[in-house]
Simulated assay, not measured.
Amino acid sequence: MWHSAYTTTGILAAAALIGAAMPAHAAPAGPSLRDALAPGLLGLYPTERFKLATGRCQDCAAPEQALWYFNDDMVAVAKAGPAGYAPRLRAQEDVLAWLISGGGRPRDQPPPLVWIGSPHVAEGRLGADARLARSDGAPPLPVELTPKLSTNRSYADAGSLAFFAGGDVKARGALTEERFVVRTLWPKRYALGAAAPSVPLAGGETVE
């Protein structure tokens, strides 16, 4: 049985624009447009510790339930030594058991599965003309939202793009020959500071 601070599947997303199947994509180039697992970090861990797969992966060290949930979607799975969880324990009990089993020292274990959803990442300043201006001097990139599912009654539209226009964003999606089809969009002005101070929980507060 695994014990870990991870009690649920890690999900890397902000504003989820869940849509239909992604179109065929072209190869990205440049720092402002890159593959989903290009050298760098995925959360707190180097991308080189993960591989791309779908939930139908037969040799992935991830919970069956998580793989089933992302059956036909793109995920990143740990190549080796993933963290796990004790299914019969509550979240805080699981964390405590994990700490005790490691002698009180955190273990360098990546999450078993991270939702990726899209093959590419694009960064830049979103314009009112639905183009992404890129800081590395590359030509502006036309963007559009992935098609809406008929069952999704709450969805982004042209007004959403107008709201985010003028700000720096990070988007996940698929690069086609003509444009970048956005599936998730994260305004950088909402990013948390990397050096935010740690503050103990106050009386009555929990992590649940």
Score class of each variant (00 low, 15 high):
1 M>C: 00
1 M>I: 13
1 M>N: 01
7 T>S: 05
10 G>D: 08
11 I>W: 00
13 A>R: 12
14 A>Q: 12
21 A>L: 10
21 A>Q: 12
22 M>D: 09
23 P>N: 01
24 A>H: 10
24 A>R: 07
28 P>Q: 13
28 P>M: 11
34 R>K: 10
34 R>T: 09
41 L>P: 04
42 L>I: 02
43 G>F: 08
44 L>T: 04
47 T>R: 07
48 E>T: 00
49 R>I: 00
54 T>P: 06
55 G>F: 09
55 G>R: 06
55 G>L: 10
56 R>K: 14
58 Q>I: 09
59 D>S: 04
60 C>I: 01
60 C>T: 04
61 A>C: 04
62 A>R: 09
62 A>W: 13
62 A>D: 10
65 Q>V: 06
65 Q>K: 10
66 A>W: 12
66 A>M: 05
67 L>K: 03
68 W>G: 00
68 W>Q: 09
69 Y>A: 11
70 F>P: 02
71 N>S: 07
71 N>T: 05
72 D>R: 06
75 V>D: 13
76 A>Y: 04
78 A>V: 01
79 K>I: 11
80 A>S: 07
81 G>K: 09
81 G>H: 13
82 P>V: 03
85 Y>D: 08
87 P>Y: 14
87 P>E: 13
92 Q>N: 07
93 E>R: 03
93 E>V: 00
96 L>P: 01
106 P>W: 15
107 R>F: 15
109 Q>A: 06
111 P>R: 05
115 W>C: 01
115 W>G: 05
115 W>D: 07
116 I>M: 13
117 G>A: 09
125 R>S: 07
128 A>P: 15
131 R>M: 11
132 L>T: 00
145 L>M: 11
145 L>R: 01
147 P>Q: 11
148 K>D: 15
155 Y>H: 12
162 A>D: 10
165 A>Y: 14
166 G>M: 11
167 G>P: 09
167 G>Q: 14
169 V>L: 15
170 K>M: 08
171 A>Y: 06
173 G>I: 07
175 L>H: 07
175 L>Q: 04
177 E>T: 06
180 F>T: 00
184 T>G: 01
185 L>W: 12
186 W>I: 10
190 Y>I: 04
191 A>F: 12
191 A>C: 03
192 L>W: 15
194 A>H: 08
195 A>L: 14
195 A>Y: 14
196 A>T: 00
197 P>L: 06
198 S>I: 05
200 P>H: 09
203 G>R: 05
203 G>A: 10
